[in-house]
Design a protein around this nucleic acid. Sequence first.
DNA 1: TCAATTCATCGTAATATTGCGATAAAACGA
DNA 2: TCGTTTTATCGCAATATTACGATGAATTGA
Lengths: 110, 110
Amino acid sequence: MSATKEIHYTEEQKRLAALFKALAHPARIAILQMLMQHRTCYCGKVTDMLPLAQATVSQHLKELKLAGFIKGIVEGKQVCYCLDEKKIGQIRALLGGFLDQLAGNDRSCC
Amino acid sequence: MSATKEIHYTEEQKRLAALFKALAHPARIAILQMLMQHRTCYCGKVTDMLPLAQATVSQHLKELKLAGFIKGIVEGKQVCYCLDEKKIGQIRALLGGFLDQLAGNDRSCC
DNA sequence: TCAATTCATCGTAATATTGCGATAAAACGA
DNA sequence: TCGTTTTATCGCAATATTACGATGAATTGA
């Protein structure tokens, strides 16, 4: 086993992968699209619009929140979820930058 | 259970999620970055540069290929992997479009 | 206070992903 | 032909994800 084998992934690689992973489920895509379109973004409303139980939706919301895509503001009994525009801007720069590099590359070897 | 509960995810949501999932692992990010930087893109070379066994790398390459990011051209004993620029262009348009929508949104409710 | 509502968390089952060694398949060179 | 090299696939173990019902915590309204 060569020395390079010992090298771990870079922080950037781990960050990119984690962000992509947060988007790697149709339910989470659907939630984000929902938050783009509606103002009504209470957890219950989200649950109504997805083919999932409330506990499962709550879990997906938690993941999106952890990754920085959304924030949840407690409003009495309910929790209002909405897009975290500031963080999404940063995320988009990161992920978009990666995709641009990928597409902008001109090193076809085959 | 309401009628809306029966609704499945849209094809677009499933497609986006599947593409993001292909990028949701640091090893696959590393492979793509490697293919961006080097011309040498044989499977063995990729294996040398990752902290993974050959069988595992082969698996990751397969996933990237299935998702459309790379193609593998058999050259004698070896297989030359490289970015599939055409498909990556389409993928970038799709994923980038989603990210742009997400970021371009101005409906903060909180 | 009490019941109802809303959401999060816990425990758990089912499934998917990741990783590896062993092995198969294909091509090459001697 | 035979051994070597390169890559893919198989089988399996470990871990992670997904989903749900049950339950807990907080708030509201009666």
